[in-house]
Design a binder for these strands. Structure first.
Length: 420
RNA sequence: GGAGGCUUCGCCUAGUCUGGUCUAUGGCGCGGGAUUGCUAAUCCCGUUGGGUCUUUCAGGCCCUCGAGGGUUCAAAUCCCUCAGCCUCCGCCA
C-alpha cells in the first residue's frame, strides 16, 4: 500500500511517480478525496464519542434519583455515535479496498518501459559453444531417467514433474549449495510454512492483485504460497523491531505453487514453468537508508551463486511497466539456455521499500525519533527447476552426460552426471 | 477429534467471580534528573501502540487489556465467534 499521508502532502510527486507505471491520475484524485472524507468522518465520530463517554461517566457518580434522566440523555448520544460509526465503517471499507490495489511508487532509477524493455546491466560467465547437436533439458534428463513428465501428467496433470535418481539428488545438492552461499553472507536458513492465511498474502501484496495465480484450499482458509517470500516477509508481521536487530536476513527453502493462469501454450515443454517447484529465497528487513545497498548486495549473492554453477547469464534492470505491485525496482538474472537458444529468467530480486511493511505493520523502533516502517527486499538464491535446466544444458557433452561444476561436486558427490 | 485452563501497555504481574472511583496495579528493564560519595546505594520524574485535529519546540480528543462481534447509559470485567499457548485423553510422522 502506498502512504495515504504522502498522497495528501505531496500529491504531485505521487501522481508523477505512478504515471510512470501507467497509473491513472484521476484515480489518485478520487483516492485523495476518499481519504479526506475518511478523516473528516473520523473527527466527527471521535467528537461524538467523547460527548457520549463523558455523559456516561457522570452517571456512575450521580445520585440514584438523578440517574434515569441522565441515562435517557446518554442513550440519545449513543444513537448518534452508532449512526456515525456505520458511515465510517462504510468509508473505511471503501478506503481499504481502493488503496490496496495501488502499486508501489517506482524507484527513481528504475528504467521506463514495459515488458521486454529491460536494460542489460552486464553479462557474466562464458557462453557455451558445442560441436554436436545440443539437447534440451527434457532430452537430457529423461534419457537418464532423472525426470518423468508423462507419469506426472497422469498423476497430477500438465505442468508437473517427477525428479528421480540423479535429478532428485541434483535438487538436494543445488539447494544446500545455495543455502551455504547465502549463509556465508549472513542469511539465516529457514524452512517456512507454505500454507498461509489471507493476512500474509495481503500483507505481501500478492492479494488482491495476483489472486488468479494463487492456489487456495477448499475447506480451510489457506493459501498455498507462490514463493517463500510470503511467509518470510510475514514472519515479522505486526512487530516493532529494535533498530539494533537490523538488518535481519533470511534464506528460506520451500516448494512454491502457482496456477499459471493465462499462460496456456507458453513454455509447455519440460520444467521451466510448472505448478509446483522448489526455491531457495533470500529475504531482508533493513533500515530505509540501507535498502538500495541491500538490493545490490542480494543481487551480487545471486551472481555469485550462478557464477559458481558456470552458467552464462545477463543481469537485467526491469522496467517500471513490468514490475509487480509491491516492487519499486527489480533486477532479474537471465541465464543462457542452450536448449532454447535464449536468455530466460532464473532469479528475480526486488526492493519493495515500505510497501509490504505498511501492509504487514512491520516497523522499527528508533533510539531517536518516531517509529518508522522497515524496508523489505527479496531475491531468488536458486530456483531449483530453472537452475537444473541451465546447468544440464550448459554442461552437457556429446554422449548426453553432464559435467558437474567444481562448486557443486562436493555437494553432489560426483564429477559427472548421467554417465552411461 | 474430545475435555479443561490461559492470553493485560518491552518482560513479569494485580484487576475479571460482584460492570462505573481502571485516566489499568506493582516489580524488572529502559530514559532523564537529584542527592550522598567509593567498586555502589537511595529518591524523584518519564516509559503501549495507533488515529485525528489545532494557532505544531506543544496540546486536545478518539481507539487500543489476543482478534472480531454482541449486551449496556457504561465492558479488562458479562455473552458469542475465531486465533494462539498450556495440560490431559484419542490419533499420528
Amino acid at each position: 500500500m502506498i502512504d495515504p499521508r504522502l498522497l495528501r502532502d505531496d500529491f504531485e510527486s505521487v501522481a508523477t511517480a505512478l504515471a510512470r507505471r501507467g497509473y491513472d491520475r484521476d484515480d489518485l484524485v478520487a483516492l485523495a478525496e476518499l481519504d479526506d472524507r475518511r478523516r473528516n468522518l473520523v473527527a466527527e465520530v471521535d467528537q461524538a464519542r467523547a460527548a457520549q463517554r463523558s455523559a456516561s461517566k457522570a452517571i456512575g457518580q450521580a445520585a440514584p434519583d438523578e440517574r434515569q434522566a441522565m441515562i435517557d440523555a446518554a442513550s440519545a448520544l449513543k444513537t448518534r455515535v452508532g449512526d456515525l460509526e456505520v458511515q465510517l465503517a462504510e468509508v473505511e471499507r471503501e478506503h481499504a479496498a481502493r488503496f490496496a490495489p495501488v502499486p508501489n511508487l517506482p524507484h527513481p532509477e528504475a528504467p521506463d518501459g514495459v515488458e521486454g524493455d529491460g536494460i542489460v546491466l552486464r553479462t557474466f560467465g562464458e557462453r557455451p559453444a558445442f560441436d554436436f547437436e545440443v539437447r534440451d533439458h527434457v532430452e537430457l534428463l529423461e534419457s537418464a531417467d532423472a525426470l518423468d513428465l508423462a507419469r506426472a501428467a497422469k498423476v497430477s496433470g500438465a505442468r508437473f514433474a517427477y525428479l528421480k535418481g540423479e535429478g532428485a539428488l541434483l535438487e538436494f545438492a543445488l539447494v544446500r549449495y545455495a543455502i551455504d552461499v547465502a549463509m556465508r553472507h549472513g542469511h539465516v536458513p529457514v524452512i517456512p510454512p507454505v500454507l498461509v492465511r489471507e493476512e500474509a498474502m495481503y500483507g505481501t501484496g500478492f492479494l488482491p492483485t495476483d489472486e488468479q495465480q494463487i492456489f487456495m484450499t477448499r475447506d480451510d482458509d489457506f493459501y498455498l504460497v507462490g514463493t517463500s517470500e510470503v511467509p518470510l516477509a510475514a514472519l515479522h508481521m505486526d512487530e516493532l523491531l529494535d533498530e539494533e536487530q537490523l538488518p535481519i536476513r533470511y534464506v528460506g527453502y520451500s516448494p512454491c505453487f502457482r496456477r499459471e493462469a493465462g499462460t496456456h501454450g507458453k513454455d509447455t515443454r519440460g520444467i521451466l514453468r510448472v505448478h509446483q517447484f522448489e526455491k531457495v529465497e533470500m529475504f531482508s528487513f533493513v533500515h530505509p537508508d540501507l535498502a538500495d545497498a541491500e538490493h545490490e548486495r542480494i543481487l551480487s549473492i545471486e551472481e555469485e551463486i550462478f557464477t559458481g554453477l558456470g552458467v552464462h547469464a545477463q543481469v537485467v534492470d526491469i522496467p517500471v511497466g513490468d514490475l509487480g505491485a509491491s516492487a519499486a525496482r527489480k533486477f532479474d538474472i537471465e541465464a543462457w539456455l542452450p536448449g532454447q537458444d535464449a536468455y530466460r529468467e532464473v532469479t528475480s530480486c526486488s526492493n519493495t521499500t515500505d510497501y509490504q511493511a505498511r501492509r504487514l505493520k512491520a516497523r522499527i523502533r528508533q533510539r531517536e525519533g518516531d517509529n518508522l516502517l522497515v524496508h523489505t527486499l527479496n531475491g531468488t538464491a536458486l530456483a531449483v527447476q530453472r537452475a537444473i535446466i541451465a546447468l544440464v544444458e550448459t554442461h552437457q557433452r556429446a554422449d548426453g552426460s553432464v559435467v558437474v561444476p567444481v562448486a557443486l561436486q562436493s555437494y553432489l558427490g560426483r564429477e559427472v552426471l548421467f554417465a552411461r
